[in-house]
């Protein structure tokens, strides 16, 4: 399980364009960091780099467990959730099929899936096709994955944008629970996170 994420002197580029250089921070169990920055500053790219999907130009991304450094691929494959703009949901499948597939793919159990369905109030939506869901409902389905398969590090890209006020509060409570149980949250946001969080500003290179 991931206890600490350390980013050291990281530089990222998209194609020919340098996004930022020399970014360093650490994130420990129970902490949340809110990434802020202008559109295109590289918040999403940073999340993808931490998830191992984007190769850094320079610098290090390190994961530590209780007993020391973790092998990055292993830490990532069982230890983090990425929730991005593209939620990976197939429009012609039902919410139930997609939730159960992704939850089990990420290592979720039946009990945890049932808990997730209750936590984000998915029960009435389960038999609908994804194409019939609103943006907020889709997001709740994507969020359910985080609860259904417990993993320490949550990488969230504007997680609350499509949610209504009540669901934002509910998701805030879920994030607080995750932090209390030793989770880590790294979230790209434009509005403040509903949990206590350090702010990290990403500025263009």
């Amino acid at each position: 399980m991931i206890h600490r994420l350390s980013v050291d002197n990281l530089a990222l580029a998209r194609g020919e364009r340098n996004l930022f250089t020399g970014l360093s921070f650490t994130l420990s169990a129970g902490e949340a960091v809110a990434l802020v920055g202008a559109n295109g500053a590289g918040k999403t790219s940073l999340l993808r780099a931490v998830a191992g999907l984007l190769r850094p130009e320079a610098g290090m991304i390190r994961f530590d467990g209780a007993l020391g450094a973790l092998e990055p691929d292993e830490a990532r494959s069982g230890g983090l959730h990425l929730l991005g703009h593209h939620d990976g949901l197939k429009s012609d499948r039902t919410a139930r099929e997609e939730l159960f597939f992704w939850a089990r793919w990420s290592g979720g159990t039946e009990a945890a899936i049932a808990h997730a369905i209750a936590a984000v109030e998915l029960a009435p939506l389960l038999d609908l096709e994804i194409r019939k869901l609103s943006a907020g409902q889709r997001r709740r389905l994507a969020l359910a994955r985080l609860i259904a398969a417990p993993r320490a590090l949550w990488l969230l890209d504007e997680p609350m944008a499509p949610l209504d006020a009540a669901r934002r509060a509910a998701f805030g409570a879920l994030m607080a629970t995750h932090l209390q149980t030793g989770g880590l949250i790294l979230a790209a946001v434009h509005d403040p996170l509903p949990v206590p969080a350090r702010t990290l500003e990403i500025a263009a290179a």
């Binding site: 993808r48 998830a51 191992g52 999907l53 990532r76 494959s77 069982g78 983090l80 959730h81 990425l82 991005g84 703009h85 593209h86 939620d87 990976g88 949901l89 197939k90 992704w102 793919w105 990420s106 290592g107």
Partner: peptide, 16 residues
Amino acid sequence: ERDFEDGALDLLVLGS
């Protein structure tokens, strides 16, 4: 292509 475009490939990469 479909999994690549809708983000599912990201999540498949992050599986065990």
